[in-house]
Design a protein around this nucleic acid. Structure first.
Lengths: 132, 132
DNA sequence: TGGTATACATACTTTAGGGTAAGTACTTGT
DNA sequence: ACAAGTACTTACCCTAAAGTATGTATACCA
C-alpha cells in the first residue's frame, strides 16, 4: 500500500528533484545522447547547419534541427540567419552555452584518458578546442 | 538515391563515429538522463543500494539497478556484497569512475551559475563533493 | 532543362527507455 | 503469527525519442 502511493508520486516529485540535485538540473537541459555532442561541435565557434551535419555524420537531419531548436529555446545556442538564397544559417553558443566548455572539455579529457587505443585520435581532435 | 544510401549507412557508421569525437565516446558510456545523476551521488563515497534509492527519490528501483548493472559492466562502478541477511550491498566508483569527478563537478558548477534562484540550494549540495 | 546546394518540414514507423505493479528469500523485531 | 526491511527480479504497458523517406522554395551553374 505504502509502496504504491510512493510510486505514484514519483513523477509529481520530479519538479522537486532537480531543485535538490545540480546534476539533475543539468540533465534537464543537456541530457540525452545528442546535445552534448552538438554543443561540443560548436565549441570551436559558430557553424552553419550543413557544417554541423557534416561534422556529426551519424545524426539525422530531423534530430539535428529538433535539438538545435530545443537548445535555442533553452538559450544555450543562438541562431543567426541571413535572408539570402540559398539560405545561410549559423548556430553559435550563447553565454551560458559557452559556460559549458569546462563540462565538455572535462568529458573530452576523460575520453582521452579512458579510451585506450582511441586516445591518440581523440587528443588530435582536441587540438581544435582549447580549454580556455 | 544517394540520400537513401547515405541514410541507410548512418547506423553502420556509428561504431566509427565515436572514434572521431571524444564526447560521443563519453555519451556511449554515461549518456542518458540517469547515469550522471547516479554517478554524482556516488562521488561522496560508497553507498548502499537503499541509500542511493533514497537520495534519488524520482528513480524507480527497476531503472536504478538496471543502470547500476550497466555502469558495473562498463567498469565505472564496483559492486560489493556481504553475504549476510538482510543483504548488504554497496556501490562505489571505480578508478575510471572517479576520473569522472571533473566532469560531474563542472556540471554542478554550471548548474550553480546558471540556475538563477536555485543556485543557493545547489551550492549547499556541493559542500559534500569537494573538487579534489 | 535539369542537377545541385541550402535549410529545413513532415508523415509514418520502430525502438528503447522508462514506469507500474507485484513477487521473492531471508531474518529480525513485536 | 505477522509486518518490515533488504536487494533485487519479472512481466506488462506506454510514451517519447529516434530513424526512414520524401518534399519544399529558391537560385545558381552547366
Amino acid at each position: 500500500m505504502a509502496s504504491i502511493k510512493e510510486a505514484s508520486t514519483i513523477q509529481e516529485n520530479k519538479s522537486l528533484a532537480f531543485v535538490t540535485c545540480p546534476v539533475t538540473f543539468v540533465m534537464e537541459k543537456i541530457g540525452g545522447y545528442w546535445k552534448p555532442i552538438i554543443l561540443f561541435n560548436l565549441l570551436s565557434g559558430p557553424k552553419r547547419y550543413s557544417e554541423l551535419k557534416r561534422s556529426i555524420p551519424t545524426i539525422t537531419e530531423k534530430v539535428l534541427i529538433q535539438h538545435l531548436k530545443q537548445l535555442e529555446s533553452d538559450h544555450l545556442v543562438v541562431r543567426r540567419s541571413k535572408p539570402v538564397v540559398p539560405p545561410y544559417v549559423t548556430y553559435e553558443l550563447s553565454r551560458s552555452g559557452k559556460a559549458l566548455r569546462p563540462v565538455l572539455y572535462a568529458m573530452a579529457e576523460w575520453a582521452v584518458a579512458n579510451s585506450g587505443k582511441f586516445s591518440k585520435t581523440f587528443s588530435r581532435q582536441m587540438k581544435d578546442f582549447p580549454a580556455a
